[in-house]
Design a binder for these strands. Structure first.
Length: 685
DNA sequence: CTAGGGTTAG
């Protein structure tokens, strides 16, 4: 079911009908109220008819009502939301021309406009301007700026302003302490948080709900059990009652600490004992499971909640939506989003961003585009995160021109590109072989004062490795120390993979040793890279040895390991393949779409394209979700069958063997598609 | 809520 979107045509008609009504009022000598004018301004700004806004203002001067601060604030706010913060700022002078003095709200709108776009220095410029114009900044003003610096992780600046306001005789409020403590938590500076809390209490400021949430969540996340208990004691001493029960808090605490199983157990235990729980406890669990990509568990928690008659809230739905998006169940996710809108839940930019990312990750570019346009149609202004997700998705899809356009659009709307944005674009350029462009962007980000981070460097090293330019990759690796970056496990794995790609197993080993020397133990990815390296150099026994190795050192093999080994199995001589298969099957691996793809492609490669199509058919009968690669493989098989290209015929034994591997995989998916059928749309009554 | 390494395809 799709939600109703007001069509632009209808909307325009409405706006101009409203203007006609205004004219008629004027004709009969009725002066409209200021608030009526505000509504008209809002409508005109929404459709972008700035000419009429101007005309309306002049009409007000001639015939009243006199424009008030509020009228202007609405106009400035709109420009800020659309990204024209500069224009908003220039409207300050227009205001003064209409003999309106900008008030603290006006300035706060502008400051907030700059801050949400990461333009903290512009924001500080407005603060100075307001002081110069004789308007005293309020605590809110400073809070906006402190929050912006905290979000950027720039705690020194945040702190400086915090100290500064005290010098001018202002006393920080609870919100300000909350903001600062939140920032220090993000910077992992728990001690600083504790000091601030002490200070706040000594000043006689009482913690509020946000203080509690920030501190409790932070202490749980950092495993500071003592701190969280001390907080609870302190609050109960103050007579502070959190807006949920202690049981809810316990569940939330376990979730924040990442102890999800325990949280769910506790929940079920409470319910069994007949202790009532609120939506909050369930929301914590559902959110945590969804974030971890464990959508099945999230859904189970939701069902328990519904069974006990609890009505899902906006955040329940957002969390379920996150889980669905992460699992590629996009129709359901979009349906849920529309349902949320119909239920009147506030429009949720985060939910849109999550879904957008989901479409891209599933390779559904059309879906992503349609959602992006729907956002626009609904008047949701993408923020820096939404833009970054959009740019990243387009880059990964190889649509670099469009990604770059979005990047320009983002700066036009006043956002300062951050490392997320640049890294996504740089990755995109590397991916399609335009290393030169990638390096140009890296220079550009440095010129803009952004520091290339470990992500940037790893992306660039990977770019060189992909092209087999190991010398250049090593140069970047050597240079990263100079700019103060330490290689991490991804750096080493990337370089080891690079050597494997050029079949230089000696070079790979050399880097493996370097990795050990700098204190990193190989992880499952390192082993997978090695196994694939041995596979591509046809060193089957070495690949098997690696598998034994990784298990011996206690690393858990995953689906990628299984798939890579399956590749070995498919190309190996039959006797050895069967022994290896027996070994693999004992490990109870979970196949995925890549497993299916590689088996389908082996049929094709080994002269049995009709089997590719046959199994493809069988899989689609159980509504298996294929991806882009699956379709490419089947398309290729189809062409082969059509052209009757069949020079080599596989031995019937090998054919039977591949069939049995495919059957095992097919059977797995058949079983989960019949057991896992769930209906998870929340129903609110 | 957004960025990096490993499996299929090319």
């Amino acid at each position: 079911m799709s939600a109703k979107v007001l069509r632009l045509g209808d909307f325009l008609k409405m706006v101009y009908e409203a203007l006609e009504i205004l004219d008629r009022m004027r004709e009969v000598g009725v002066t409209p109220s200021s608030s009526a004018m505000t509504i008209l301004f809002r409508l005109l700004l929404r459709v972008g008819d700035y000419g009429s806004v101007w005309k309306l203002l002049r009409g007000m001067i001639r015939e009243g009502p006199r424009p008030c601060n509020f009228n202007f604030n609405v106009i400035i706010l709109c420009f800020c939301q659309k990204g024209y913060v500069r224009i908003g700022e220039s409207l300050l002078y227009v205001m003064q021309k209409f003999s309106c003095q900008p008030d603290v709200y006006t300035y706060n709108i502008l400051i907030s406009g700059y801050c949400t776009r990461g333009r903290t220095s512009d924001a500080l410029g407005v603060v100075h301007l307001m002081i110069k114009n004789g308007c005293k900044p309020s605590l809110v003003t400073f809070n906006i700026v402190i929050n912006a610096f905290s979000k950027q992780g720039n705690m020194e600046e945040a702190r400086k302003i915090f100290e500064g306001i005290q010098e001018v005789g202002l006393s920080p409020n609870v919100e300000m302490y909350n903001t600062l403590m939140n920032g220090y938590f993000k910077a992992s500076d728990v001690d600083q948080v504790n000091i601030l809390y002490e200070e706040m209490r000594n000043r006689g400021l009482a913690p509020d709900g946000s203080t509690f949430n920030i501190l409790f969540a932070g202490h749980c996340k950092y495993g500071r059990e003592e701190d969280s208990h001390r907080l609870l004691r302190d609050l109960s001493y103050l007579g502070f009652l959190p807006d949920c029960s202690l049981y809810d808090i316990t569940v939330a605490g376990l979730c924040w600490a990442g102890r999800l199983g325990e949280a769910m157990e506790f929940l079920e235990d409470m319910l069994e004992k007949g202790i009532p729980l609120s939506v909050i406890a369930f929301n914590s669990v559902i959110a945590a499971y969804s974030r971890a990509g464990l959508e099945e568990n999230a859904n189970r928690a939701y069902k328990v909640m519904a069974m006990f008659g609890l009505v899902p809230s906006s955040s329940t739905c957002s969390s379920l939506l996150l889980g669905l998006s992460k699992n590629g169940r996009l129709q359901e996710a979009r349906g849920l989003l529309h349902m949320m809108i119909e239920k009147g839940f506030p429009i949720n930019k985060v939910a849109f961003t999550v879904l957008l990312d989901g479409y891209f990750k599933a390779g559904d570019i059309t879906g992503a585009h349609s959602l992006w346009h729907e956002m626009e149609a609904r008047g949701i202004y993408p923020d820096a995160v939404a833009f970054s997700a959009f740019i990243d998705g387009l880059s990964k899809a190889g649509l670099l021109e469009e990604a770059y356009d979005a990047f320009l659009d983002m700066s036009r709307k006043g956002f300062v590109a951050n490392n997320f944005t640049y890294n996504s674009l740089i990755h995109g350029f590397c991916k399609c072989g335009k290393l030169h462009e990638a390096l140009k962007l890296e220079r550009e980000m440095r010129q803009k004062g952004l520091l290339p981070d470990i992500f940037t460097i790893n992306i660039i090293i990977n770019g060189f490795c992909k092209e087999g330019r190991m010398k250049a990759a090593i140069d970047v690796f050597t240079d990263m120390h100079r700019i103060g970056l330490t290689p991490d496990i991804v750096t080493y794995n990337t370089l080891i993979g690079g050597y494997c790609k050029v079949f230089d197993m000696v070079g790979a080993d050399e880097f493996l040793n370097k990795m050990y020397a700098s204190g990193w133990d190989p992880d499952i990815t390192s082993y997978n890279i090695y196994i694939h390296g041995f596979y591509s150099t046809r060193k089957t026994s070495q690949a098997v040895m690696m598998l034994d190795n990784l298990i011996a050192v206690g690393v858990f093999p995953d689906t990628v390991t299984y798939n890579t080994m399956l590749n070995v199995v498919c190309t190996d001589i039959l006797d050895r393949a069967m022994i290896l298969t027996a070994k693999l099957l004992k490990m109870a691996f979970v196949p995925n779409v890549v497993t299916t793809n590689l088996l389908l492609s082996h049929f094709c490669k080994q002269g049995m394209p009709e089997k590719t199509l046959l199994w493809g058919q069988k899989l689609s009968e159980i509504s298996f979700t294929f991806d882009k690669v699956s379709y490419k493989i089947m398309e290729k098989a189809y062409i082969k069958v059509q052209n009757k290209v069949k020079p080599l015929r596989a031995t019937s034994a090998k054919s039977l063997f591949l069939d049995s591997l495919m059957y095992i995989t097919y059977d797995y998916f058949r079983r989960i598609s019949t057991n896992g059928k769930t209906s998870q749309d929340p129903q609110t009554n």
